[in-house]
Simulated assay, not measured.
Amino acid sequence: MLKGLQVAFLGGDTRHLEMILRFVEWDANVVLIGFEQIHDRFNGVSMAKLAKEVLRKADVLILPVVGTDEDGRVESSYSTDTLVLDNVCMDWLPKHAKIYTGAAKPYLKNLCRNHGIDLVELFNRDDVAIYNSIPTAEGAIMMAIQNTDITIHGSRCMVLGFGRTGLTLAGMLQRLGAQVKVGVQKPDQFARASAMNFQPFFTKDLNDEVLDTDMIFNTVPDIILAAHVITRISHRAIIIDLASKPGGTDFRFAEKRGIKALLAPSLPGLVAPKTAGHILANALCELIQDELRPDQVMEYA
């Protein structure tokens, strides 16, 4: 229980609605900034503008999973206001406050560092990333089904990257009956993929491996599907890029070649926001309770 903890949500999307509900259940004091257009009102929650009198009380500030952009702007699906987290806002926060987000860009990292405010990136946690890979993989497969005229079963699929999302996605595709190639960078990943009955290859050989592939799923955040690779891809193939913006695909050249290439970041919030919000809320509660001092635990109990 987090009774007495002052929690401010600054912007967010459908995932945050589930997170808000969980914090209310845990008896925290919750204030919402940038949520004036939500249809359902939450009991025991207050609405506010981004102002000094709100942030100076905050023990916890929760941002969208993408944090801020490089100009400090904060996205909200439920507001038309321009929300900006800047030096003035950081001066309003008490020094013991913590900021939580999914993954932070350099602007937000530097802002917190300069003001001595702790920043916690939830997607750096293995448990969050692994749980989050499930709705990501399901969403990628949904997009493939919607945008192709063949079944997953019997198709020739390629997954680029064998991290937490790549591993989950490759496994799902294989269980649906696809022939799955996996592009890896390290010998241990090659061995793991081989042991799991995938067809591994090193991404340095991608140019030769993309021939006769029906579906390509990319999780690598660097430009891996460059123009010289795309020229080797069949016109009937589809590329689904799961890497964070701007992705790992030369989308301009893919369009020029007549190859359908879709950028699909943040799929958990689109295809399973309740589950994604539940994952983030549980991680947040665990982190907050672990980081509280014994005297704070007594206060919030």
Rank of each mutant, 00 (worst) to 15 (best):
V65W: 05
V66N: 11
G67Q: 04
D69T: 09
D69Y: 11
D69G: 10
D71P: 01
D71S: 15
R73A: 03
V74T: 00
Y78L: 03
D81S: 11
L85N: 00
N87L: 10
V88D: 14
V88C: 12
V88G: 10
W92T: 02
L93M: 06
H96S: 14
K98W: 11
Y100H: 07
Y100T: 01
A104W: 04
P106K: 13
Y107Q: 10
Y107A: 10
H115Q: 11
I117L: 14
D118N: 11
L119D: 11
V120P: 04
V120E: 07
E121Y: 09
N124T: 07
D126N: 12
D126M: 06
V128T: 07
A129Q: 02
A129T: 06
Y131E: 11
I134M: 09
A137D: 02
A140V: 10
I145S: 09
N147M: 11
T148L: 04
I150M: 12
I150F: 10
T151I: 07
I152C: 06
I152G: 03
H153C: 14
H153L: 11
G154Y: 10
S155Y: 03
R156D: 15
C157S: 14
C157G: 04
R164S: 03
R164N: 03
G166F: 01
A170G: 03
R175C: 12
Q179K: 09
K181G: 02
K181H: 11
V184W: 07
Q185A: 10
K186E: 12
K186N: 12
P187V: 08
D188T: 12
F190N: 05
A193H: 00
S194P: 05
T203S: 14
L206W: 09
N207V: 13
N207G: 13
D208T: 10
E209L: 09
E209P: 07
